[in-house]
Nucleic acid binder design. Structure first.
Lengths: 350, 350
DNA sequence: AGGCGGAATGGTAACGTTATCAACGGTTGC
DNA sequence: GCAACCGTTGATAACGTTACCATTCCGCCT
């Protein structure tokens, strides 16, 4: 029993294949009665248009790609992927997943060819690809549609659909919360600088400090990568000095988890001896002991919205504006007011 | 500048499109000189065959799907996905990802239609879909090629390519290690019973106990799911009783992490008061404090091999046999010999 | 010598859809 | 009353590839 084709539907409905095609594509020029007939025939036969033939003959394609860093945070990427996939399924699109190395010199060419070679309707770009100006320019030049997920405080207004996550505001909120608890000696551990989220988070921290009249001390701000190991290393260094901070804000949960391990190996009791906060709210942070105070992003919603905006643009031709997400402060057990005896020397040192 | 087609290559090489097609498909009936000419033309034009047209016209398709539980362990799925994707890229295949609900009553129909509707060359099935006999039968009846990743002690010899992971042996090794440390009061926390891995791991545990002359005590074996929360709940219950075990073996790292949290909330010092072991070696287990003793699977290799076997079968028509993986025991800080004073009552109770 | 078989290649049609244009009946405008 | 126009539908060809069969050329067998 062969799969039904558009011709089967056409002859059952007593119209031409062309008319069926019009119904499938929601073209407005078909008479309502005809639409009914065709719809019924489609139902009866369980007809599903063949995406292969459609994109071979047509101008359009029904596949988009999700482009992501191939050395990913698994939870983040899989959530994103779920959201994107959900939006695709709703609209009958397929998803191609495309992990890639952001540092590859061939990245730009590779990605701009990808759309042609795989007959893609468009791309959903995640950081750091979504923040690569050279790539974006080339995609535009090649007329490749894309939606971006980026870290930013405001709408980039570059004409392409965009979901921007206000990491600055969330990092500000976390820092302000630590300050409100009574901390002043708050260290900040950076993430990879080639992700836009890193400076955004740092600036959120720095702005909160300044606006509360607390100077940002260089020795409390350490650069590094978004990894557990690097969080461990840096926290260890901070805690070994005699002017140790009373709180550590890690740029993501991995870093914070590393700091937690360092605290424990230094014999400190978190949160009483040291407060630790993370960012991202991956499942780990709820399961750690103590559970991490962090900023929670609804990653799968972010993915869903980015894909929806891209598909909407593709279908309606309009350029939909951007959308803002602000990660929410989630207070858990890893943060508490500082010990009086620990706060004193730190304040004196500042 | 249009994408080059097979005709462009043909006229540049001075042959017919048919011959170019033969070269692309590595058919042996083309003269060596002709192959050279065509290859050069392909290089010159940067020609890439159009997968859309190939699968529309041809018998074959160049996309396979990765089918997985939509409520997944992110690290596991993403690693698997990476491996599968690697194998696909090597051979010029595309990957469709297909998360699904294993409990859906429509699962079997949905998946057997999937292959036709999306013109798929085959499926890579992961647990528990790979262990669903009704699904496998239907796929076979519909002539859908698939490769399976399953938990099993031996080759299922069902004619389909298969990667089987010997969870039994690894669970045996973990249990034997705990026994060797001196534990006899070893609790076992089950995973979801509708995953084949759960009984496999349990039997590995039970066999190790029996072969070392230690009876399996019912009160030390608790059923449940593969989640942190359920690990926490069950460990708490075990530790609350006065006949608490000196070691807990969780069926996966999530469960073990839950047990770790329960131990901590009960004021126990792991590993000195209680040893805890997990299974799977997800990144969390290295970052926990103390780091978890566990069994390590090279998940991305498993994915790569499953996909390779499927693609090999599709290309060569041979039915490649199955392949065995045995997770390796990884000893970390969460296990230690039992305290003498804790072991005594437990031994007395056994 | 005639025929036969194999190796190498080409011609033709088709996969399932849609872009394009043509055609139809029925207004509307002048 | 005739042209221009609208809403609706259909015929045709094409997208890029490959299945299938036909053709050519050659050497070899009887």
């Amino acid at each position: 029993m062969r799969r039904p084709t558009i011709k089967d539907v056409a002859s059952l409905a007593g119209v031409s294949p062309m008319t069926v095609s019009r119904v499938i594509n929601l073209e407005p020029t078909v008479h309502a009665d005809t639409v009914q007939k065709v719809r019924r025939a489609i139902e009866t036969l369980h007809y599903r248009p063949d995406a292969t033939a459609r994109s071979l003959r047509g101008t359009r394609s029904f596949t988009i790609a999700l482009v992501y860093d191939d050395n990913p945070n698994a939870n983040y990427i899989l959530s994103l992927q779920n959201g994107v996939l959900g939006a695709c399924r709703e609209r009958g699109y397929e998803l191609l997943i495309y992990p890639c190395d952001p540092r590859s010199p061939r990245l730009v060419d590779e990605l701009s060819l990808l759309a042609k070679n795989a007959r893609l309707a468009g791309l959903v770009l995640t950081p750091p690809m979504s923040e690569n100006a050279r790539l974006l320019a080339k995609l535009k030049a090649n007329d490749v549609a894309y939606a971006r997920i980026i870290a930013a405080r405001g709408d980039p207004k570059d004409g392409a659909p965009c979901v921007y996550v206000d990491d600055h505001k969330a990092a500000y909120a976390i820092t302000a919360y630590l300050i409100q608890l009574g901390h002043t000696a708050i260290a900040f551990l950076w993430g990879d600088p080639h992700y836009r989220s890193s400076p955004e988070r740092y600036e959120g921290y720095a702005d909160a400090m300044k606006e509360h009249g607390i100077p940002v001390r260089k020795k409390y701000v350490l650069e590094g990568t978004y990894t557990f190991e690097d969080g461990f290393r840096r926290a260890r260094k901070l805690l070994a000095g005699k002017d140790a901070p009373s709180a550590i804000f890690g740029s993501n949960d991995e870093i914070a988890a590393g700091a937690l391990a360092a605290a424990r190996s230094a014999g400190l009791d978190v949160p009483w001896d040291l407060s630790i906060a993370g960012f991202e709210d991956n499942p780990f942070s709820r399961q750690a002991w103590p559970a991490l105070t962090t900023a929670s992003q609804s990653t799968s919603e972010i993915g869903r919205h980015a894909a929806s905006r891209l598909l909407e643009q593709l279908q309606k031709g309009t350029l939909p504006g951007s959308e803002r997400f602000v990660p929410e402060l989630v207070i858990r057990g890893s943060t508490a007011p500082p010990r009086a005896e620990r706060r004193a020397p730190a304040a004196a040192g500042a």
